[in-house]
């Protein structure tokens, strides 16, 4: 069984994995990161999206062995933890704009939202909608998600610009 090292939310792990083990199952079932859910088996829904070496990736379509040596950030590693910990500006924006209902797509949606700002920190509505095309939500009709991403972008821009 291949042994891999992987950093998840800042913690380094060494794990022996079956070659076929999916990254999302490593995260959920071995490393306790149940914040990242699975919604489909064809990489359409995007619920399992995480940051893999700083870029969004669908963790259901990556083998754990492929992530050997990589750095993974899940929804659980975004803000500072603890009940009094602060959320990432994008998480806060989703809360403020009521951009989630059942919340199942939310971890992936937040990751996709943060990712799209890497290349376009001030996205138009169209850019936002295109940037989220790989993440499905069944509850919100996306209206408030689009608003949240815009708000999150503003907050993140402010955070960057504040000395």
């Amino acid at each position: 069984m291949p042994r891999i090292t992987i950093t998840v939310d800042g913690i380094k792990y060494e794990e022996d994995v079956e070659p076929r083990l999916l990254l999302v199952h490593l995260l959920r079932e071995r490393l306790g990161r149940t914040g990242t859910p699975v919604g489909c088996d064809t990489s359409n829904c995007g619920a399992c999206t995480v940051m893999l070496d700083g870029k969004s990736a669908k963790s259901c379509s990556v083998l754990a062995v492929q992530a050997d040596g990589c750095d993974v950030v899940t929804i659980e590693g975004l803000g500072t933890n603890g009940t009094n910990g602060s959320m990432h500006p994008m998480q806060r924006a989703f809360h403020e704009e009521h951009a989630l209902q059942c919340g199942y797509c939310t971890p992936g949606m937040v990751m996709a939202a943060i990712d799209l700002l890497r290349n376009d920190p001030e996205p138009s509505e169209e850019t936002i909608r295109q940037g989220l095309e790989g993440n499905l939500c069944r509850c919100t009709g996306y209206c408030n998600i689009v608003r949240a991403v815009r708000r999150g972008a503003q907050e993140m821009g402010r955070a960057v610009n504040t000395p």
């Binding site: 990489s43 999206t49 969004s56 669908k58 379509s61 799209l116 940037g131 095309e133």
Partner: peptide, 9 residues
């Protein structure tokens, strides 16, 4: 092609 996350990989 596909979507941003898939284009990354």
């Amino acid at each position: 092609v596909a979507d941003p996350a898939i284009r990354h990989r």
